[in-house]
């Protein structure tokens, strides 16, 4: 087992290194173009009555990275999530999902279930474990393209039994990875809050997604479980998935994310690697609730970041160098 753990840690580190290398040439301005984006958002706007909840000019999420979406309460993070996953409809805008480097799907007006089938799966801030179903049924439900989910074939078990068994095996494997295998036959409603978060994440993986979108995966989880949840998130990246997650806690963000997008008042006010972003005075302002009578102009935001950029890039380069040395040993 220990050797396995080491290998997992190594894999995670390698993935992080690779991600950081991809992004090391990207400048730190809102709406910056990434070399290999998996999700590209353009001019998405959502108003509730007179209130602008989301107004994003341009935003690209990098492939194979963990991207954190942060911002104060009411910044529009969850609304953006809802829009991107088809749970809400914007007044304006378009976004494109690129499952591979050379395919692109327009996702506007695609219903939520099709978004999930396309490979963008999401979780919810308030966990939606299906309480009156067993943990295993929760998992098996999520598998896609099941023969037995069609109304007439479902009456003839021999048509779908083989597939169902394969799905069950895969589900048990994932449950084992999330240390929920002993709970497989219990009702999901009996799990603790943290276990439900784990189940929801594991269940999302059953859909074999390309992007995993986690809405506050750490909210309401006791500290003992936080670390294990973080490891699971990192493991997703090692497995080649792209992760986008909404989070409040800057420490968590700094620990696991490759890239951070900061939202305030519906718009993106800053982007960059975690350390750069957390040093940005405008981000700090936004978090501390400093009052700005008008939205911050981009130039103002860009300037301080550009100053820091050189220094930070050096820092990262050094870190990469160091990590590579460690890995080489």
């Amino acid at each position: 087992m220990p050797s396995n753990d080491i290998r997992a840690v190594d894999a995670a580190r390698e993935a992080k290194v690779a991600a950081a290398r991809d992004l090391s040439d990207v400048s730190h301005e809102p709406g910056v173009v990434k070399p290999d984006a998996i999700l590209v958002v353009d001019g998405v706007r959502r108003q509730f009555g007179g209130l602008v909840a989301v107004d994003v000019d341009h935003l690209e999420f990098p492939r194979g990275c963990i991207t954190a979406l942060i911002g104060p309460n009411g910044a529009g993070k969850t609304t953006l999530f809802n829009l991107l996953t088809g749970f809400d409809r914007p007044q304006d805008g378009d976004w494109e999902f690129r499952p591979t480097a050379d395919t692109a799907k327009k996702m506007r007006n695609v219903p939520a279930y099709r978004v999930a089938r396309a490979g963008m799966v999401r979780t919810f801030q308030l966990t939606k474990a299906l309480s009156k179903m067993t943990v295993l049924d929760n998992m098996k439900l999520a598998a896609t393209r099941q023969q037995g989910e069609r109304i007439w074939p479902s009456l003839l078990p021999f048509l779908w039994r083989a597939q169902d068994q394969a799905i069950e095996a895969r589900a048990m494997e994932l449950l084992a990875r999330f240390k929920l295998d002993t709970k497989a036959q219990e009702y999901a409603g009996t799990l603790s809050g943290g276990q439900r978060k784990l189940l929801e994440m594991a269940r999302a993986l059953m859909t074999e997604p390309t992007i995993v979108m986690l809405d506050e995966p750490m909210a309401g989880v006791n500290p003992a479980l936080t670390q294990s949840l973080l490891e699971h998130v990192k493991a997703l990246r090692s497995d080649g998935m792209s992760v986008i997650f909404v989070e409040h806690d800057m420490d968590v963000v700094r620990d696991i994310s490759d890239w951070v997008v900061v939202m305030a008042q519906g718009g993106v006010i800053a982007e960059g690697p975690p350390d750069v972003v957390s040093a940005n005075p405008h981000v700090i302002d936004a978090y501390l609730g400093a009052r700005h009578d008008e939205a911050l102009p981009e130039v103002e935001l860009g300037a301080p970041l550009a100053d820091d950029a050189e220094a930070v890039r050096e820092e990262i380069a050094a870190e990469i160098h160091e990590t590579e040395k460690e890995a080489g040993q």
């Binding site: 009156k132 179903m133 098996k140 989910e149 078990p157």
Partner: peptide, 24 residues
């Protein structure tokens, strides 16, 4: 006992969850 019934139960419990898992 079929996957079809499982989807129905999931919808009864929380239809958004079922939707997020790709169920129509």
């Amino acid at each position: 006992r079929s996957p079809w019934g499982r989807v129905l139960k999931a919808i009864r419990e929380d239809e958004d969850a079922a939707r997020a898992l790709g169920k129509n």
